[in-house]
């Protein structure tokens, strides 16, 4: 951050700098596939896409709960499905040594995937 360009600030300038540095140095959100690590690079991509779909399903489920459009049976099935899906994702993340942070692609000017 070019400090000469700051013309107004309020709150904690330290916290602001910290966040701006995260953006400047944050490149963990990119797929870094090389011939040596292509398997984990690909796994990261696939799991990121599955995670995106899982999150969308979760959002949709919350909308349906809010809309009160689910029966008792449907809510039990939905909860079980989402729970199993999340557990399965945790298993896969462990297998490929990935964390939640890894499953977030930076799409440059479009921002983060998730």
């Amino acid at each position: 951050m070019d400090e000469n360009k700051i013309i107004f600030s309020s709150g904690s300038i330290g916290e602001i700098k910290e966040e701006l540095e995260k953006i400047q140095y944050g490149n963990q959100g990119r797929i870094n596939a090389t011939p040596e690590n292509v398997e984990s690079g690909l796994a990261k991509l696939v799991l990121t896409l599955i995670e995106l779909i899982r999150k969308l399903m979760e959002k949709q489920a919350m909308r349906r709960i809010e809309g009160d459009s689910l029966t008792e049976e449907e809510i039990e099935n939905l909860g079980e499905t989402l729970m199993k899906l999340e557990n399965k994702m945790d298993e896969l993340k462990k297998i490929f040594n990935l964390t939640d942070k890894d499953l977030n692609l930076n799409l440059g000017p479009l921002g983060d995937l998730i």
Binding site: E58, E76, G79, L82
Partner: peptide, 22 residues
């Protein structure tokens, strides 16, 4: 909390936690 999430089953407890975060 929506009435549909009242209950003690694992499914409902799971969805309730998700609902709080949501």
């Amino acid at each position: 909390v929506p009435n549909i999430l009242m209950g003690t089953s694992d499914s409902k407890q799971y969805l309730l936690e998700k609902y709080k975060k949501h």
